[in-house]
């Protein structure tokens, strides 16, 4: 019985995703969604889809409608990118069950290589939105859009649920078993995950490879275990999901062992007194006085680039 419940939970998420993408539409899926929701107490999804045309007056719903439009636009891009992905990577053959039923959709789900969340099939890096952002990939699928966070989505779903007595009774029936509801909530969260990172420089085109795997084990040993060197760090603004305060991080691009490594350095807090040598303090003190932060040697990155510019800047920012 529990296994059947888990399977029913599995069936809900891809159908919901397809409905948002506009691929599957029909009363049969609505009935199946309603049946699964009634069985598991997840009666929020049909109410949200049913309530959307009635709440056009509110601003948040307008954003949601805009999100739907954006998804439709992305859907066209996804198809072309999927064809491109198949043409480029023939060794890794992905599952070709995109538009089939919900059962095979669950079996053919692409998972993120970093965190295991559900990733889009059109993403070349095979990662979810969060990991694409954190790794600094310039993924064309996970483009910045009018995305609504999962917390706000849950916030909208709970209002009609709290008012509806039948949904309350279904929640009370499902309160005995916590696992199906947790899995259901996780499925909703996985499809909506992003972090808005606005970097002023996009990586150059020569680094955008669909297969970013490293070479064999021989060349990997040539990389040193630890390197102490001076590098150029570029300040970027990391925006939180909610309207809280922004946070500043630093972006670094270094070359070690003939290969390029890129990533973001986040603020860990104040420096402990016994942690670092005083040489860096003296150097940083000199740099802190100079507001521009231009060092004596020629900088690697071009000076005229906008530091706090929006995403999608020029690709030649890293060339000197």
């Amino acid at each position: 019985m529990g296994m059947v419940g888990l399977r029913d939970v599995f069936l809900v998420a891809p159908a919901y995703h397809h409905q948002n993408a506009g691929v599957i539409s029909g009363s049969d899926h609505m009935n199946s969604n309603a049946a699964a929701a009634a069985a598991l107490g997840v009666g929020v999804i049909p109410l949200l889809t049913a309530g959307t045309p009635q709440q056009n007056v509110e601003d948040s719903d307008i954003n949601f409608l805009g999100n739907n439009r954006r998804w439709q636009n992305n859907n066209n891009n996804h198809e072309t990118q999927y064809l491109h992905f198949k043409s480029t990577n023939q060794t890794t053959v992905g599952t070709s069950s995109n538009n089939s039923g919900s059962g095979s959709g669950a079996s053919g789900t692409a998972t993120c290589q970093d965190c295991g969340n559900q990733a889009k099939k059109e993403c070349k890096q095979r990662r979810c939105r969060t990991c694409c952002k954190s790794r600094g990939f310039d993924c064309s699928t996970h483009v910045k859009s009018t995305w609504v966070s999962a917390a706000r989505r849950r916030e909208r779903q709970v209002m009609p649920t709290g008012a509806n007595p039948t949904a309350g009774s279904s929640l009370s029936t499902s309160s005995g078993t916590k696992k199906p509801r947790i899995v259901g909530s996780q499925q909703q969260q996985q499809q909506q995950a992003t972090s808005h990172t606005s970097t002023s420089n996009t990586p150059p085109q020569s680094f955008e490879t669909s297969s970013s795997r490293q070479d064999g084990g021989g060349s990997r040993e040539a990389w040193p275990g630890q390197v102490r060197a001076a590098a150029v760090f570029k300040c970027v603004r990391v925006t939180a999901v909610e309207d809280g305060d922004d946070e500043y991080a630093y972006q670094a691009v270094v070359k070690i062992g003939g290969h390029v490594f890129k990533g973001f350095l986040y603020d860990q807090g104040l420096e402990p007194k016994e942690g670092f040598p005083s040489m860096s303090d003296l150097h940083l003190g000199g740099s802190a006085n100079n507001h521009n932060g231009v060092s004596a040697s020629a900088p690697i990155l071009d000076p005229p680039n906008v530091v706090y510019g929006g995403g999608g800047g020029s690709g030649g920012g890293f060339y000197s």
Partner: peptide, 27 residues
């Protein structure tokens, strides 16, 4: 790295071979 008294830390991921020799090699 330590900047303005704060410690910044993060992971630098692999991006590929530097064909154009745009960056000096740190190692």
């Amino acid at each position: 790295v330590t900047i303005s008294g704060h410690i910044f830390k993060g992971f630098l991921h692999y991006y590929g071979v530097d064909h154009n020799k745009a960056f000096p090699c740190l190692s």
